[in-house]
Amino acid sequence: MTEEIIIAGFGGQGVLSMGKILAYSGIMEDKEVSWMPSYGPEMRGGTANVAVIISDERINSPVLHNFDTAIILNQQSMDKFEESVNPGGVLLYDPNGIIHHPTRKDINIYTIEGANEASKLKSSKTFNMIVLGAFLKIKPIVKMENVLKGLKKSLPERHHHLIPMNEEAIKVGFEKIKEVQTV
């Protein structure tokens, strides 16, 4: 199994930390992982993205232009990454703020109302966990118990009291994901 994922959105949406939790979850399952971020001032309010690879084998290239899954959280990222999804791959996005919806016919498309669901949970911080939950519903590449372990690993001790809320958010994502098209 090798899963190559791009997560892309605005800086501040928790894109990088979602990738980190996924990578940590992979480690908990003894898988190979890599996490390659965009970096630099472009992150200041601008776009942020991270390529995460989780695999049973040694990972060769951490830099990719094509992905099995694209998790897209703003319009710029949609413009940039829709084309990079492998045929038959998955595009998961939050429709909030998206004007030009994906048009490809050869990929599986899902939506998750991450921002709306987060505001229902009264915590914008849960946004990325909701999206992560949605992703895990379609691609259960890591076990839930390991995601929680990964979450624990990636959060500093003083934030561990937030874990139950994040667990809740993952479940919301699991339930609220919507299928747009499958191929």
Binding site: K20, A23, V33, S34, W35, M36, P37, Y39, P62
Partner: peptide, 10 residues
């Protein structure tokens, strides 16, 4: 380089 410096791995 910036790839190896910035990426996370095991």
């Amino acid at each position: 380089d910036g790839v190896i410096g910035q990426m996370m791995e095991k």
